[in-house]
Design a protein around this nucleic acid. Structure first.
Length: 690
DNA sequence: GCTCTTTCATCAAA
DNA sequence: CTTTGATGAAAGAG
């Protein structure tokens, strides 16, 4: 973040910090100066996994006055989301685009271009902060909508997988069905007239897995066509393109994209390929050369992934990355592989936009890049080495003992769980004891994604008869992505991934020493690595059935905070101890039990709440039990994952008939392990081919 | 409005 | 694993 204010001096910055203007930090400062508050018992700088506890209070509108006193500020002054945290990219594009000091091009048309651009995009040189508030709202909306869409897709997939044993028909296109559900609910974003230039709430580097996602946020409307365009008067100009094909030989270095026009393909059985015509998308792109308007570019990669859970059949997974704005420079005719004429367009990326992380990660220089100071902080204990990168200063990561399991004290004795007796995979949700404990469903998709946030997830464990490959064993197998820790500008060390991470993926556990609350209390203040666990779900009946239908009612009834346990990752820990707090996080903490039946001591498993591009910092909400007011303001939009479950539940009722159709075939699987470079393998036809 | 056509999707069978 | 056919939703064009 750019500005570091004075508050920063008050708070001792250690490895795990919130951003300077994060509500939590404000709250903490306020509490310091106002020690006689009523909630001193909670004034501990500790993380907790039970955020919805506070959410329920916010919803019930209690204690608004107290809340104001606590922070010393009216609650409304606390901006709900996106208020300074790890998401540094917001609104970046608009800012930098107008930095006229940038060398735009060497054709000397900078001023000319800028004027045309201004004309089209009607952007009056927005200063740094002006557009931010509205833009942040748009960002939240886009992220919420996408999370909702992804959650619906996972839910539908879960139902498909659960019913795959029976003989009924499956839903063929889950992506389309999920889109239809969202549309019926009026959840589309940026509807109305088409947008030329940047789409509010969408940032360079955002990743998607379905074309439907591009449509529902207004980034690119056609579901199949690669060129979207709009009419201005009698003229059509291009607004966005999807580049899923090859031609990208010069990926590494240049910001030039050669794009092939549409049409001319032999689509049907008896049709012959034809010369492309200068109409529709092709015409729009050509017109955009004259108009010099921005064209959004979305790059698509296709890769075949294999799941470790399931029948071993691969599945093609597409990843679409928003690449930013380009300008069409020229076009010409060429001969395609089928011998007919095709149009080609040269597009150039507008300078000043965020770097494209996928380019970095794919480039060969990347492995030997600067700032690498520790090759593997886990010292070989993790499946992947976790390196430390510091391009800010000379600091090395703090010393601690890396562990891959919890460190238990002498007094601790685990309660062995009852396992399931499934020998042929835990797919029968009625017979599998673990599925029953999860409310009659396996909480994961076969691709290893968690379907929705739950109070507690029961994975199969050592007492189960199912094999380690059971798809109800996800988080117990450890990290699946190549992670690294890096020095941030203002929040100490942080964690990011070198590959793309799809929504719902397991990231890592929060490991450390298990402490009783009394002991944790003593360490509070000097220890920044405490995580409160196992709070507040003694009444399991409330969680299990009701939570997805009436979450707030259930939660308000179970607000009693018991004496619990805490994980201290100061001396012993894993990569999880480096993950920072954010009020608009991309991860969340999920309670999981598998090798122990003590609900007071669940594993704290961090999962991706949305698609996370490579090199984007990963964060979760610490849910500090320090200042409820800040949380009340901040958690509203935070619980989308949890909320998704509720909304899905109701949505599914509406389309019950649809969804009741069941699958006949064991669905194939997709995996989202690493993001392999598929450029070389891309099938390429002039029009993308069919 | 109503069809028809087009479309760098997607799935699953061959 | 690669290819191919069937299916599909949305929007422009007539």
């Amino acid at each position: 973040m750019a500005g570091v204010n004075d508050e920063n001096k008050i708070v001792v910055v250690k490895g795990l910090m919130a951003a300077v203007n994060c509500p939590w930090r404000r709250g903490r400062a306020a509490v310091k100066s106002n020690p006689s508050t009523t909630s001193m018992k909670r004034n501990r700088a500790k993380r907790s996994n039970f955020a919805w506890h506070y959410k329920s209070k916010a919803l019930f509108g209690k204690k608004q006055d107290d809340v104001g006193k606590l922070t010393g500020k009216p609650i409304k002054s606390i901006s709900p989301l996106m208020e300074g945290d790890a998401d540094e990219g917001a609104s970046q594009m608009q800012m930098v685009l107008w930095n006229e000091g940038d060398a735009y091009d060497n054709d000397g048309q900078l001023q000319n271009d800028l004027q045309l651009i201004k004309k089209w995009h009607n952007l009056s040189l927005p200063p740094f902060g002006a557009a931010c508030s509205s833009d942040k709202g748009a960002r939240i909306k886009v992220r919420e909508t996408l999370r909702l869409y992804q959650a619906i897709v996972r839910k539908l997939l879960q139902e498909e997988e659960a019913k795959s044993m029976s003989k009924e028909n499956s839903i063929r296109r889950i992506d389309l069905l999920a889109g239809k559900i969202l549309k019926d609910k009026g959840k589309y974003v940026n509807t109305g007239k088409q947008i030329l230039g940047p789409v509010p709430g969408v940032e360079v580097g955002d990743e998607f897995h379905y074309r439907v996602e591009l449509m529902i946020i207004g980034l690119h409307r056609p579901l199949q066509s690669g060129i979207d365009y709009l009419k201005v008067g009698k003229k059509i100009i291009a607004t966005s393109i999807v580049a899923s094909g090859g031609y990208a030989n010069d990926v590494d270095s240049s910001d030039v994209l050669i794009y092939t026009g549409q049409g001319g393909n032999a689509t049907g059985g008896d049709k012959q390929p034809e010369d492309q015509k200068l109409e529709r998308g092709n015409l729009a792109l050509k017109n955009s050369i004259e108009e010099r308007n921005f064209v959004r570019v979305i790059r698509g990669f296709k890769d075949t992934k294999f799941s470790e859970f399931g029948d071993g059949r691969g599945k093609v997974v597409a990843t679409y990355t928003y690449d930013g704005l380009y300008i069409v420079k020229k076009y010409w005719q060429d001969i395609g592989p089928h011998g007919k004429m095709v149009y080609k367009f040269e597009l150039r990326r507008v300078p000043g936009q965020s770097d494209l992380s996928w380019k970095h990660v794919k480039s060969k220089k990347f492995k030997a890049r600067e700032g690498r100071c520790v090759d593997d902080i886990s010292e070989g204990k993790e499946v992947f080495p976790i390196c430390a990168v510091n391009t800010i200063d000379n600091e090395k990561p703090p010393k601690f003992t890396y562990v891959t399991r919890m460190v238990f004290p002498d007094w601790y004795h685990s309660i062995p769980p009852r396992g399931c007796d499934c020998v042929n995979g835990c797919s029968d949700s009625e017979k599998c004891a673990c599925a029953v404990r999860n409310g009659g469903e396996i909480p994961y998709n076969y691709n290893g994604a968690i379907v929705e946030a739950k109070p507690l997830v029961y994975e199969c464990g050592p007492c189960c008869r199912c094999p380690p490959s059971c798809h109800n064993r996800v988080s117990q197998h450890g990290i699946k992505f190549q992670l690294e820790i890096f020095k941030t500008e203002s929040r100490g060390w942080g964690v990011r991934s070198l590959s793309s991470i799809p929504s719902g993926s397991f990231i890592c556990e929060y490991l450390g020493e298990l402490l009783e609350d009394k002991e944790a209390e003593q360490r509070t203040g000097s220890d920044e690595y405490l995580f409160d666990i196992g709070q507040n779900y003694n009444d399991r009946a409330l969680w299990d059935g009701l939570s997805t239908i009436m979450p707030d009612a259930a939660l308000s009834a179970s607000e009693v905070v018991e004496e619990g346990f805490t994980i201290d990752a100061a001396k012993y820990g894993n990569v999880g101890r480096f993950i920072n707090h954010s009020c608009s996080p991309n991860l969340y903490a999920q309670n999981v039990l598998y090798d122990n039946d003590d609900k007071r001591i669940p594993h704290i498993m961090l999962f991706a709440a949305e698609n996370i591009p490579p090199l984007q910092e990963m964060t979760y909400h610490y849910n500090y039990t320090i200042d409820e007011s800040a949380l009340a303001g901040c958690t509203d939009a935070l619980f989308d994952v949890f909320h998704c479950a509720v909304i899905i539940e109701s949505l599914l009722c509406d389309i019950g008939a649809f969804v009741a159709i069941v699958g006949a075939v064991f669905p194939s699987l997709h995996v989202f392990d690493s993001h392999a470079d598929v450029f070389g393998k891309q099938r390429f036809l002039p029009n993308g081919g069919r």
